[in-house]
Amino acid sequence: MKEPTPTPLREAWVIFFLLGVVMLNFPFIEIFNKTTTILGIPTLVLYLFLGWPLSIGVIYLFSHRLENTSAPEGSGDEDRKDRQ
């Protein structure tokens, strides 16, 4: 394998990354591009400041998955490093 990370995780990563790019830009963002307020906060502001922690959560889950799956490989790579 080229990369030690398991492939399903990699594919998931690609999907989320692209999703992030899409959801951050025009035209998707246009949906929220209003100043009507929800709970007193403008929609776009709310979208960005809720979406942001949400994506941080996704990253957290991803890194959590990495911790669990790549533990043996992690030590293997480090062995290789120490051999230097």
């Binding site: 990370t5 990354f17 942001w52 990253i59």
Partner: peptide
């Protein structure tokens, strides 16, 4: 800051 958040996602690679 949003850009770097997305970038941080790619860090593992």
């Amino acid at each position: 800051y949003l850009g770097p958040t997305l970038m941080a996602f790619s860090w593992w690679f």
